[in-house]
Design a protein around this nucleic acid. Sequence first.
RNA 1: GGGCGAUUAGCUCAGUGGUAGAGCACUUCGUUGACAUCGAAGGGGUCACAAGUUCGAACCUUGUAUCGCCCA
Length: 1052
Amino acid sequence: MAMEKAFNAAEAEGRLFEAWEKAGCFKAGANAKPEASTYCIMIPPPNVTGVLHMGHAFNNTLQDILIRWKRMQGFDTLWQPGTDHAGIATQMVVERELAKNQEPSRAELGREKFLEKVWAWKEHSGGTIINQLKRLGSSCDFDRTAFTMAGAAGDTRTGHENSSNFHDAVIKVFVEMYNKGLIYRGKRLVNWDPHFETAISDLEVENIEVAGHMWHFKYPLAGGATYTYVEKDEDGNVTLEETRDYISIATTRPETMLGDGAVAVHPSDERYAPIVGKLVEIPVGPKEHRRLIPIITDEYPDKDFGSGAVKITGAHDFNDYQVAKRGGIPMYRLMDTKGAMRADGAPYADETAKAQAHAKGAEFTEGEIDAINLVPENLRGLDRFEARKAVVDQITAEGLAVMQTRTITVKDEEGNEAEVSQTIPMVENKPIMQPFGDRSKVVIEPMLTDQWFVDAEKVVGPALDAVKDGTVKILPESGEKTYYHWLENIEPWCISRQLWWGHQIPVWYGPKLDDEHLEKIVEEQRASETSDETYWWRLDNAMAFCAPNETAVINAAKAYYGDRFEISTHQDSGSVGANHPRLHTQIDLNQPGSDLTKDDKLWVTLVRDPDVLDTWFSSGLWPIGTLGWPEWGADTSKYFPTSTLITGQDILFFWVARMMMMQLAVVDEIPFDTVYLHGLVRDAKGKKMSKSTGNVVDPLEIIDEYGADALRFTNASMASLGGVLKLDMKRIEGYRNFVTKLWQASSYGDSQIDAFSAERGAQPPSATLPLNRWIIGEIAKVREEVDSAFEAFRFNDAANGLYAFFWNTFCARYLEFTKPIFFGDDQAAKDETQAVYAWAIDQALILMHPIMPFVTEEIWNVTEGRGFETGEAAKMLAHADWPTYTAADLVDTEAEAEMSWVIAVIDNVRSARAEVNVPAGSKVPMVVTQIDAQGQAYWDRNEALIKRFARIDSLTAVDETPKGCIAIAAPGASFGLPLADIIDVAKEKARLEKNLGKLAKELGGLRGRLKNPKFAASAPPEVVAEARENLAAREEEEAKISEALARISEIA
RNA sequence: GGGCGAUUAGCUCAGUGGUAGAGCACUUCGUUGACAUCGAAGGGGUCACAAGUUCGAACCUUGUAUCGCCCA
């Protein structure tokens, strides 16, 4: 059948993908040979709310290349697709949707109803990105599409119908790790998002440089003490000396001053040495209740930054937190979950007294300190930014701001200008790095909160060892260094999020209890029934029960509380503080005089922790969770441990390292043996793609315009190990042209030489012509090149090798050289060449299929005609057998030498003609002055070919080169083009001289090396031999050109 | 401040000890029986800098400069 004029990607891609899926080409184990080893890739699960971006396109192209390659090789392959539930992103999307449709808000709906809405949204829109992966040609086993919330309450099982019960796996792991003491609850400074009212991970924080202010304030020394403040220049000369009764502090966040626990200076800072250990007063809040804090030393303050003294607010700054931990400085939390100044607790006077008591040595627990609210009444409930203004105003009004004098020009009423000196507070306007929530876009507040943690230090060991001993390989190697650096300095992993959408933590709280303290508990209970004490505060004294489900937790609670108690559970509606664990009795404990007797029946209500697990906790279980652990059967567990993980280097720690730790902790096996890391896809200039810059490239638009194959080829060619990924449209266009080239070469085979009617199979047809023997060898070489490139994850080498082979060797040489045969009349030669041509195209399609599946499959199907060898009908290319022939099998060195001689003659003639302006179209005569027997044989066999492509009409042997002749040198032969009438003698001389110049440079290097006795002594023999051969060849060429130059000079 | 990396042709990048390559761009030519989404020919680099190791360095070592990314 005649092929279309060009490949219509837009029309063919959808049709081909459907055909592959319909034929079950991508199912786990499809095309596997009997007893084949498994090869499995776990997709890095995209966010279920996501849409395909260039990063996904790149990442999935590489995965698809590997899986298609292995599938064709006959491995038992599985490429596992799926999405993660993306807690905060999904919750946000659904909340926004509710608002848009004017439906009740999340808070109005309550937890259960809201989660129904989320599942409904997932059912409707959650499949977007999975379907977009298909546009790219991704050959995942989509029947197994997984979801990290599969099996959780309310799951409608849409879009992940066959997914295993991921929820059970997550909960099981949590419970087991909890029981082993690997998971605990504690206070830590986290990135708090005041909009979503949850902790978020570092990855979800964007640090953005914004215009900020730096205020300078005076903290007066306690009791009016003074000291001599001395500043010196570099040479030690005193530049300032004054008596001060304060220490100057610079801050960009004055509202946090209320929670200061200390002022820190560098131990080597001489300016403050006299006052280290003294107390200073925090210059804000009601004067009579101002707290005194110590001046301490710590390595953290930078002497040259600001005044060199740093206020330490451990509960609201990551650096300060470390200083506070080192120095035992209390951390006072100032804000609530919305980022407003706290309004809870006792009056300010009482609270500040508590803090002062603690400072003087009274014992407080961490929770008790956290309960202290150091916000003065007049600031309570204010948004943090309003509070900042108020604090600045109050300090300035009191004269405790550091002032500066400025001269400004003012105009009076008549317009006269006058210079006026002004003293104003010192406020520096300077850019500061500020953290923003990547989804909420609000300023992230570092906040000390109760969170759940994995004690990562206890599980990191095996994950480190597996990479150190080479069991798991990370590419590029720099990734391993980063991995070690991360894991050797690992911190506790915060796994709780204050969200509803996610795996709810399987922990229930009840009152702490034992017989001795029962009365005390009852008393406390009595009090708390009427008090405003928060849930968070209550949990400090609560008993935690961790179990996979309610039945189990009730059993656990029974064991703890004993027979006297009835146990029930309460599902917290989700708003923090709305409920707390309770102990009930039929007696109204709040009635005066009421009391318990020993036989009174009691009830305990357990409350489930409202928090959910970080999405990374569940995606940390992705390899075993998707395969059905703990309920997996042999048909899925055989794919574990998986083979290759391809992902972005930015999540090496967040995801890769955690999968390593968790799989090793849970099933004691590595999750994968090789990790391939790549960078971010950037624009052509290397800028990050971002909506605000407007340089985002949509892969789907690229597919629409250039076809998926062009995009995929571009991705492969960019994928050098450790390479930077800059996406240039020009490059995509170039590879689109390559797709066309492949199509046209196939079309030539089809319409011009009817090659595809030839009978052929997987093995190369027998060939006698050097041209055909040569191309068969070249195919074998490129097959080896592609395989070794894929094995080494050098996708760029595979892509570039195929490109160069197909364009420069196959099309520019072989295809052209078949023309004299097909336009001649040697039928045997035609038959042989037809078969070889068709076979070579088949092989090229196979080798290019992993990178460009669509165009290759389309050509494969329209050209037909293969499978004669085995008698089997042609399979789809996606399941064609990957070849194993080697260069050693198929390269014919004689044919190779002959073709390179022919090509050299043609190229030299063409080059010489072009440089001396002989019209390319004109046919000219050629003479030969000298030719060896080998050269003569080559000429005789390839005369028609050389004449056609060098545009020569005759060859005459002469004894002496005619005057005015263009010299053509070839190995073992000297030719000339006697064109005295046409050529420009000066140009020909210039050409020869230029060639001599190039040769002289090469010869200089070669001779220099070979003359050096140490070279022959130290260099490997094959290098020396190569240099000798090279020198001989260059010398032969030099002699010929020198002679030609002498000849041409005769007529000049 | 710490970690990882980069610096090679006008641009984007390959190149792990044997004397420098690709694509694009550029110049000239071309309606030559697959292809103008093309073909032919060509120009273009002190491999950031400095010192060292080596017979030999873009590559290994040390230092310097500049630029990224991540963490603090």
